[in-house]
Each structure stands twice: as structure tokens, then as C-alpha cells.
Design a protein around this nucleic acid. Structure first.
Lengths: 94, 94
DNA sequence: TTTATTTATTGAAATATTTCGATGTTTCTA
DNA sequence: TAGAAACATCGAAATATTTCAATAAATAAA
């Protein structure tokens, strides 16, 4: 597993430190296959640019992966990054 | 293990999303037994009230535990909270 | 090719966080 | 008891984040 330094762990933590972004991750989990951006508008009570902003935080940190499909964008969780982050957290312990 | 809801995970994430606070956690790890507040002044290039502010973030979220010892305060990592947080992160996966 | 749909960008306002100097509180020590 | 040491609190300045309306860009569909 690739190791994560403190600077990166800080960025991941920041990306996870927002209720909307945690909700997005939960919606991605709920979807059988993957999540389209449009799906979020029903479940999240924010304007479209705000949701876009949060998705950007999550993709820029690679916590989620995005794939273009015509007009839509498909999102999936990046398990690898979660595992690396967990590994960093384990390393905080003695 | 006690379960952690999204609101709590958000708070933990926020507490971990700062370079100074991650450094404090690393200093706690490095110390053989535990860390005293004073030990941080040498290693962290911030004014005392700033360090105090960051320690507060970490104690208020129970990421670290504090114990008064005369004039000093002793800090230790709260492994339980870290484990609960890791458990929450595992739950983000499918 | 025009129109509708989906996502991204920009700029500004509102809010939150970080930092420090000044000062307060508690406890130890001379 | 007076002074020093360790930590906390307050208030203000600097910085960062969140949010939205307006608008742009890309693609599909009519």
C-alpha cells in the first residue's frame, strides 16, 4: 500500500470534515453501481454550484473517482485512498 | 465498539485537518509515556495561545485525553476514538 | 441546428478558523 | 506570602471555507 504523509492526511481529513461531503459519500455507497451528479440534487438541499464545489473537493483529493459518461459524470469511492488514510491513522497509535 | 455517526466523524475529521494538530499527535506518539504541553513549545513554532487552541480542539473531540498533574497537563492519545473513526471510514466502503 | 440537460466556473457575500498580544487563573517554590 | 511557571481565555486581525446567482461549456435530443 502506498504510504500517506501528514500533509496528505491533512487534506483527506479536511475533505471529510463537512456534512455535505459525508452525505455525498453515503449516497455513493447507497447506489448499487455508482452515482451520477444529478442524483444528488434530490437528496442534498444545496444549489448546484455548491454541490459541484463539494464534489471537486472529493475528486481533487482522490477520495472519489469520476468518469465522464456523455453529459453525466459517474462517481465511485476510491477504496485505496480510504485504506491509505486508515493506515495513517493506525500509525498515530503507539 | 461504540459507533460513530456522521456528525461525530465530521468533527473528528475537522480536528485532524490541521498540520499543527497532526504534529501534536505525532509528538504524543514520540514521547515514551505521555506529553506535557510545555514539550510542544520547543517543537511547534506557534505562540502559546495558538497551541492551547489546537490542544483544545483535540481534547474537545476526545481524540486526546488530558490529565492534570500539578501545574502541568499530561496528554495521551485516545486509541478508542481513533478506532471508532476508522470503523466509520470502513463503513463508507461498499 | 436549435434547444434542453448536465456539469463547471466566476465573483461576491456570509461564515468559520487560525493566529497572536494581552491578560487571567492555578499551582509550585523560594 | 511574593514571584515564577504552566496553561486558559479574550478580542481582534488575517485567512480560509461555504454558499449562491449568474453565466459558461459540453453534450444529447428534437
Amino acid at each position: 500500500m502506498a504510504s500517506m504523509d501528514a500533509k496528505r492526511a491533512e487534506k483527506i481529513s479536511k475533505a471529510l470534515s463537512d456534512p455535505t461531503r459525508l452525505k455525498i459519500l453515503n449516497e455513493i455507497k447507497k447506489k448499487a453501481e455508482c452515482l451520477y451528479c444529478v442524483d444528488l440534487y434530490d437528496n442534498i438541499n444545496l444549489a448546484q454550484p455548491s454541490i459541484c464545489h463539494h464534489l471537486k473537493q472529493l475528486t481533487e483529493t482522490s477520495i472519489i473517482l469520476s468518469e465522464k459518461e456523455g453529459r453525466n459524470i459517474k462517481y465511485t469511492l476510491n477504496n485505496e485512498v480510504i485504506d491509505e488514510y486508515i493506515h495513517f491513522l493506525q500509525g498515530l497509535k503507539k
